[in-house]
Design a protein around this nucleic acid. Sequence first.
DNA 1: TCATTATGAGACAAAAAAAGTCTCTTTTTA
DNA 2: TAAAAAGAGACTTTTTTTGTCTCATAATGA
Lengths: 146, 146
Amino acid sequence: MTGEYTVRTMLHLASQPLGTMTQISEIVKAWEIPEHFLRKIVQLLTKSNLILSRRGMGGGIELAKPAEEITLLEVIEAAEGKMALNKCLVRRGMCHRDPWCAVHLVWHEAQEKLKEVLRSKSIAELAKQSLARREQIYSLPLQVGL
Amino acid sequence: MTGEYTVRTMLHLASQPLGTMTQISEIVKAWEIPEHFLRKIVQLLTKSNLILSRRGMGGGIELAKPAEEITLLEVIEAAEGKMALNKCLVRRGMCHRDPWCAVHLVWHEAQEKLKEVLRSKSIAELAKQSLARREQIYSLPLQVGL
DNA sequence: TCATTATGAGACAAAAAAAGTCTCTTTTTA
DNA sequence: TAAAAAGAGACTTTTTTTGTCTCATAATGA
């Protein structure tokens, strides 16, 4: 669920007017996320410099840069760590078959293709598309959450 | 490890002369796999019709069709079940955001790219490449295992 | 027919990873 | 200085993965 919650949070922030500070508790309400769990995820996003946070009254979180410049890959890796389809891709030399194992090469290739797709989508794009698709399907006024 | 063990087993079988019955205990020795665990995996491969088994003296397992006709994707899915990068890809309608969530589409696209790579490699090809690469690196006579 | 040599099946256990909870701290601002 | 926000970390629970054990079934050959 971590990746799921993380993306929801970023989409939420991307759909806020620029310069708005959003409270974590607001995101928790809008999407269905356990509060304390989300707080930990948000800390990871902050450490990865994808969002900025401010404590105290009137505080909250906001995107650290324009949503157009944040890719889905960045977001997911910030929360779940570097992607690795297979253990032997995690770090070189972990598996003693590495030097000759052809399967290793295939995993690597597959992983690159996967990352390429995730890297090609910005949070801005996804947020816009989701809103558009939802509006089209339900013909409802836009509203954040659910 | 399941996927790992499964692939090793299939590569082992692919490198045997045609018509050979290979015993599970032999594979266990050649590669580093817990015996009882591998027995269960082999059962999955049998049920997926990727290998044939025969009990009793002189029995063992063998590929059910030429290694050229078995893809890496088939092998992995036989042992680990259908791939799903994300929960919402498992079955339609599981997530109520499906109809409009743009992220869902991206996951789908990424998954297809991934599967495409795995589907493009046959077990025969991988076995051959691995042997060749190993020979080149170590300049050793070919030997199964490790 | 019976002992031997294989795989088949399924319950069970242990370990690891993921998800979720709780409590206390720190910072900011009014 | 009180209230409102995020920060940090220990802890627990749940789920998934990995591994083990025991008995059943099938085939073969003496």
